[in-house]
Write a protein that binds this DNA or RNA. Sequence first.
DNA 1: GCGTCCAGGTCTACC
DNA 2: GGTAGACCTGGACGC
Length: 299
Amino acid sequence: MQLSINTPRTFSFKRTVISHGWCGLLPFEIDRDRWVLSRTLDLSDGAPVTVLITANKRAVRIDPSRTLGKKAAAQVLRDVRHMLRLDDDMAGFYQTMKATPDFEWVSEQGAGRLLRAPTVFEDLVKMICTTNCSWSLTTKMVTGLVQSLGRESAGGLRTFPTPEAMALMPLKFYVNEVRAGYRAQYLKELAERVASGSLNVESWLASPLPTAELIKEMKSVKGVGDYAAENVLKLLGRYDGLALDSWTRAKFFEVRNNGRKATDKKIARYYSGFKEWRGLALWCDLTRDWLDVDGRAAD
DNA sequence: GCGTCCAGGTCTACC
DNA sequence: GGTAGACCTGGACGC
């Protein structure tokens, strides 16, 4: 069986898939030669399923690893729409980009939709795993979580673990197996809060709170500071935080400041004109060279 | 192979 | 509110 979703005119599958590092973290996998994104999904009833996602100009195609019933198919469609941001209203952003010299390419190439996980919990855990370490260590931590605690699909690939599965594991698992170091207690505490129902991170998606207050709630999670909170905000569809880290700062120096250092205030000033879209404008600006005009990914 | 240094965000204690 | 030092890992480097 094959499922299909018609895509918005402004949607770019390639730009969305490689919009940031998530496509390289399990349970996502990317085949950059054939442009196939695979993802193992946990279904509310029945065994997990691995889906292969490809795209043409007008639609994404979804090939599941097994036959799906009506309810399971509906959940897969919902998850894929969510992950690829197919329901996000990007009109205001693209209008702003079109009107800004040197940023027109963003709307022309359909950049700006940032790949996300089916759950806020997964995005949040992964974001904590990106803090204060190399990308290779992030990969190692996430791989450890998925391989040890994920549910296996028919193809042998695994889902991202649930809060309940993570909450059951002892601290030493996060230290010795996941190699999370001092983040171990943060991950366990987060899983316990979510599993017990005392923290509902999925509600952040439709939170009525002003961004500043939502950030405050996010930062109540140990291990989440400005960088992590503002990046998760982008995955929720709010782009007023810049989420500066060592990579974005260095890239700004190179791309927009002739290789010279600049303060965070200067970086903020540079993108301030983009108002509520400034975080997304910055990210697109600094990742422009991740895909060339012919759609080839940079190495 | 071993030891040392460093980079990477966040937390806590302190001013 | 701002700042210093600690947290932990892995990579780079020198020996």
